[in-house]
C-alpha cells in the first residue's frame, strides 16, 4: 500500500459522510415538497365551488 492511502481514505470518509448527510437533507426536502404540492391541490379542490 502507498504511503498516502490512509490519508486518502480518511478524507474520503469525511467527504462521503458529508455528502450522504447533505443528500439525505435534499431527499427529505424533495419529499416534503411533494407533500406540500399535494396539500395545495387538496386545498384548491376544497375551495372550488360545487
Amino acid at each position: 500500500m502507498g504511503d498516502t492511502v490512509y490519508l486518502a481514505a480518511a478524507y474520503g470518509v469525511f467527504w462521503l459522510v458529508s455528502f450522504i448527510f447533505i443528500y439525505s437533507l435534499v431527499g427529505r426536502q424533495r419529499s416534503l415538497q411533494k407533500d406540500v404540492e399535494l396539500l395545495e391541490q387538496l386545498a384548491q379542490d376544497e375551495a372550488r365551488p360545487e
Partner: peptide, 14 residues
C-alpha cells in the same frame, strides 16, 4: 452524530 462518525472512522484509519 454524522460528524462524530467521521471522527471515529478517521481516527481508526490514522
Amino acid at each position: 452524530l454524522a460528524f462524530f462518525t467521521t471522527v471515529i472512522i478517521s481516527g481508526s484509519i490514522w
